[in-house]
Amino acid sequence: MASSEVDQKFLGKLAKAVENDNPLLAQILFKILGLSINLSAQLITARKQRRPETGQGPPVDLDLVFHIIWLSREGLMLLEQYVLPMVGNYVELKVLAYKLRASFLHIIVLFHNTPPVSTMAVSTPENHASTTVPGLPPNRVDKGKGVARDDEDDIQTLEPPRGLEGGPVGPPPGFGLEPPTAFLLKPGDYLPKAHEYFRSAVGLADQLLWGSHSLRLSVKTEYCAFLYECVHDAEGSRRLANATIAEVYNATEGVDDDMFTDACELVAVLTKMGKRGLGSNNTLRSGAQGSGSGTQETPQAEPTIQTTDPTAPPPGMI
Rank of each mutant, 00 (worst) to 15 (best):
R162W: 12
S291Y: 13
D154I: 02
M77I: 12
V18A: 10
S4F: 02
P58W: 01
S286N: 02
Y249W: 03
L266F: 00
D262E: 15
E222K: 06
T304Y: 12
S123G: 10
P116F: 00
P116D: 13
F226T: 05
A225S: 15
G55R: 11
R276A: 06
L209P: 03
S212V: 00
E74H: 00
Y190G: 07
Q156T: 10
P23H: 01
D63R: 15
L43I: 10
K143C: 06
A129F: 15
G144I: 07
A102W: 04
T54Y: 06
T131I: 13
P115W: 06
A41E: 10
A41D: 07
K193A: 07
T124A: 12
N250K: 09
D233R: 09
G290M: 02
G279K: 10
F198E: 05
T308G: 01
P173D: 12
P115K: 13
D258E: 14
A41N: 10
V147E: 14
M317L: 05
H195E: 12
D262K: 00
G254Y: 06
D153W: 07
M1Q: 14
D154C: 09
D7A: 15
A205G: 09
E53T: 13
C264E: 07
L39P: 05
E53I: 08
I305H: 01
